[in-house]
Design a binder for these strands. Structure first.
Lengths: 116, 116
DNA sequence: CTCGATTGTTACGCAACCGATATAGAGCAG
DNA sequence: CTGCTCTATATCGGTTGCGTAACAATCGAG
């Protein structure tokens, strides 16, 4: 089953949710950082720097720097891959999980207030 | 009529849409800039610097700088208010309208591919 | 073991953003 | 006109992000 959504609804939903995110902004997140965060929390592990870089179509240093920032905020963590020590595994954190969960709740409640 | 959306669906929809946005990224938009852009195009004019600043709960210089950037990208335009020349009216542009429209289309098509 | 390939990080120069403060221009009450 | 308020912008120092290029660590084929 697919979700039917008209452009006007979609944009309003995005607008409202982004506004919530800006208000929640203890962080100063970039669109890229947000994208990385959601990728790590929504797609199946394991996540490597290279893999995420390909997914976002950006260079690896971009991911490294974003992980520095997200790590400082404790929204994600890094760990060396024991199997192949060249790899870095991007891991979830409690704080990050709560943050993402809050984002989802915002969007759900915003969706309920959309005009038909 | 409200739109029923489960948290998992909402987050996946956001993830997919943000990913599209990052790919479309000729711009390097900030979450704040995106928020301003959507506000200008979705809410009723007129939009002033002060008004948008209140809406986003940020200071006015933040809006001024964001308008500099968005103006450089031709996504919005500025005009002095003839009635009260202290005000600056934030106006829409063709390029900005197309950009926002594209965002809406992305989200609509992403919504259709959501699992139920 | 050796060497090329792969992974992630760091270094560098540059541009953009931030918060806070100061400033310039316009309105408005008296 | 005078002074006070309001608007938006300019300025300052500091922080952060970017792209490119170099780098160290690790793997794996031969």
């Amino acid at each position: 089953m697919s979700l039917q959504l008209r452009p006007g609804q979609a944009l309003k939903l995005w607008h409202d949710s982004v506004l919530d995110l800006v208000h929640l902004d203890e962080s100063g997140l970039t669109v890229r950082q947000l994208s990385i965060l959601l990728t790590v929390y929504l797609e199946l592990p394991p996540h490597t720097v290279r893999g995420v870089a390909q997914k976002l179509k950006v260079t690896k240093p971009v991911i490294t720097r974003a992980l520095d920032s997200l790590g400082r905020l404790e929204l994600v963590a890094r760990r060396r891959d024991p199997a192949d020590k060249r790899n870095v595994l991007i891991q979830r954190t409690v704080k990050g999980a709560l943050f993402v969960e809050k984002l989802g709740d915002f969007m759900v409640s915003r969706a309920q207030t959309l005009p038909s």
